[in-house]
Design a protein around this nucleic acid. Structure first.
Lengths: 187, 187
DNA sequence: CCAATAGTGGGACGAACGTTCAGGTATCTT
DNA sequence: AAGATACCTGAACGTTCGTCCCACTATTGG
């Protein structure tokens, strides 16, 4: 990928990111199954061949989207944990419960998209490094004596999100809070 | 579905279950994305039109597969918990860690299939009752004073499985044991 | 025994798919 | 200015998809 000296994006870069963002929107709306060169191109408002030019195959497009998505996820979870730590014990659970309720409510499509990409990475080895990166970022920021507890915490968050996705009406903040509280400070 | 008085399966029942089992095998091998009338029919060794006869649409086929799969999952997790309880504290974690290692090792394809169907249920409301049923079975067998702890336990199991699916070499029993132990008996 | 019905199977249709190709346009290098 | 390179796009190829149609066979109910 060629870049200009002044740091501005190279010519094709802009449209490339447009296509990636359009892909994520398609996945949020119709799932990974709905991703085709044509649907993505239509969503991005570009001709069909433009997606095949920038991404030789559909897998390349999904890999790029996963990488883009994983970066956002990592920073989001990072700040979630940071906020939860800066607050007191009870307040921390409150913060996290609020974010989970958002992920299952207004941002439900996005949450589904993330887990679909995650599961796609389980099946396609070439996607795994990108999927694993955000987990690595998180585990790298934990003190070593907390390692087991932190792994349980992350696993619990994943489980709560996935289970919440199949509820007809997603669990609210108040319903999530005691569970998150237990997850942070088990008795 | 018509049945004979003596309880034996009706005529078309046998081929119907064959198709469902073939569908699950296809999902284990190629994912939900690989499920088409033709691939399922080929896997089952029946003509293509046979799948469209017994299942009007592909969604119907996936629903039937999910229901079939959910029943197996529920009984499996039920016995897992039962065994973990009958053993002592430490031995219980050992039992569960062993089952998780199996689910991520030899039965990895099956585990992926289950979570793909689970995520499909998140997107298609008509699949949700089937996906929720096995969760309901499990939550119904827990004492009420344990409710929060049990929800955290189930969420933790889900999270551990999903995170284990994107590892190049799945975590072994000994690696899982301390985490499961913490999940069962947090400190 | 004989209609009625459920199950079976081959073939084909239109639609959507991934991908290719040739030709066009903008930008960069020298 | 001019050649090289990157970028863009309309049209089309062959394939696979879901689904439909019709003829055929086995089973069932009366």
């Amino acid at each position: 990928m060629k870049r200009q000296v002044d740091g501005r994006k190279a010519r094709g870069e802009k449209r490339r990111t447009e296509i990636i963002e359009a892909t994520l929107r398609v996945i949020e709306r119709d799932g990974v199954a709905g991703v085709t060169h044509r649907t993505v191109a239509a969503e991005a408002g570009v001709p069909t061949t433009s997606t095949t030019y920038h991404f030789a195959t559909l897998d390349d497009l999904l890999i790029a989207t996963l990488i883009d998505c994983a970066r956002d996820m990592a920073t989001e979870v990072y700040w979630m944990i940071d906020r939860a730590r800066s607050h007191g014990r009870g307040r921390g659970a409150e913060e996290i419960a609020k974010l989970l309720a958002e992920a299952l409510g207004p941002k439900r499509g996005r949450t589904m998209a993330e887990y679909e990409l995650y599961l796609l990475a389980a099946r396609k080895p070439e996607l795994r490094p990108a999927a694993r990166r955000w987990l690595d970022v998180l585990t790298s920021m934990v003190r070593h004596d907390d390692e087991v507890a932190f792994r349980v915490f992350l696993a619990g968050i994943d489980g709560l999100l996935i289970q919440g996705l199949i509820d007809d009406e997603p669990p609210g903040e108040e319903e999530l809070r005691p569970v998150v509280d237990y997850l942070l400070n088990p008795r």
